[in-house]
Amino acid sequence: MTVYSPVISRHCQAGQFVHVRIGDSFNPFLRRPLSIGPCDGDYLRLIFTVKGIGTKILSEKQPGDMIDLIGPLGKPFYLPDEKSCPVLIGGGIGVVPLLTLDDHIKKAVFLLGVQSKTSLTVDESEINQRGISIASDDGSIGFNGNVVQLFEKTLQQWSGTEKQKIIVYACGPMPMMIALKSVCAKFSIKAYLSLEAPMACGVGACQSCVVRKAKAEGYYLVCQDGPVFDAQDVELQP
């Protein structure tokens, strides 16, 4: 879905999200958080899969319909410096914020994991244009296996000193994030993870959207302290 919103498209940074109102009826009641996809001038893209009632209603919007968004919200990805090697790792629809990030990084390795060829979350033309390497669980396209396995295989091509320059940027389902976090920890690779949590306010007012802190007692707010976190700072739970 392409949305005309000069204020958001011109002020957002990769990794931020919008909080989307589904309709005026108060049922479904809550807004839905969606990552800000690639922006083009006054326009931004929202890319989503239909999961339940909210995304279903959103998917039925027609060209010309109005949509109520709050944003840009949350902390963006910290951009890599010239010397580092960014590696973007997306799982399924989690690829969206990484597409936006890719537009801001000159040279990134970009990996995407999907279940199969039929569930690609990016068009094949865009995959080619961005040079994305695909991993599929059923082997129907690209690497046969999951995207974390593809990342481990890719790592073998890098020398020890090169590995130290890698910064991983990732977004995807929780099992993928947990596996990725442990691979990055093993090789002492810096990793930034974009996390999801059910949200009500989206602005840090209600304490709904928490993820456990790794180094201290208590929780971070995904909407305000994230959605992007340094992997070392958060304790991921299945």
Binding site: F29, L30, A200, C209, Y219, Q237
Partner: peptide, 18 residues
């Protein structure tokens, strides 16, 4: 610190539970 997540959900009848 509050309760473990998830902390918010909707119900089909309308309204939310926190």
């Amino acid at each position: 610190n509050g309760n473990p997540p998830p902390r918010i959900c909707e119900t089909r009848a309308g309204g939310i539970i926190n």
